[in-house]
Amino acid sequence: MKERYPDVTIETVCRLLIPPIQLFGLYVIAHGHYSPGGGFQGGCILGASFIMMFIAYDIGEVKRRMREKLNTILCATGVLIYAGIGILCLVLGANYLDYGILHQILPAYPAKARALGTFGIEIGVGITVMSVMISIFLNIGTAGEHEGEPE
């Protein structure tokens, strides 16, 4: 790996920008079912914030904040949230992903439960998209060599 040249300007700007970017990502996820946006878009923004960190600092810094195993687990968790909500609908007696039925376990009337169900799905999608973006960047950016490092 090449020597890293710290740059005060870039690092400071990134330190300032990354929290608002991540906040915006969360906002896009949370507003997915009311306005343009959603899990995929929000997840991309969250992923982009980490990619920015890759570029401004280096891989070690990002791996310190988001360990690779954790990233893999998050990737799986997002899909599990998605599929789990679908299964929950199945268990409660409706068709797969028919969130209306969730009013039986949520303190909300069916239409509200449907919105909340969609929100749950968006969260799952967001988590997965974020971690997949990070892992794609890790693998392509380092030609898969980061895996060779001892744990």
Partner: peptide
């Protein structure tokens, strides 16, 4: 759904 969820569980 069964193979989809299982694929993820298999990873974990």
């Amino acid at each position: 759904i069964v193979p989809l969820i299982s694929a993820i569980l298999c990873l974990l």
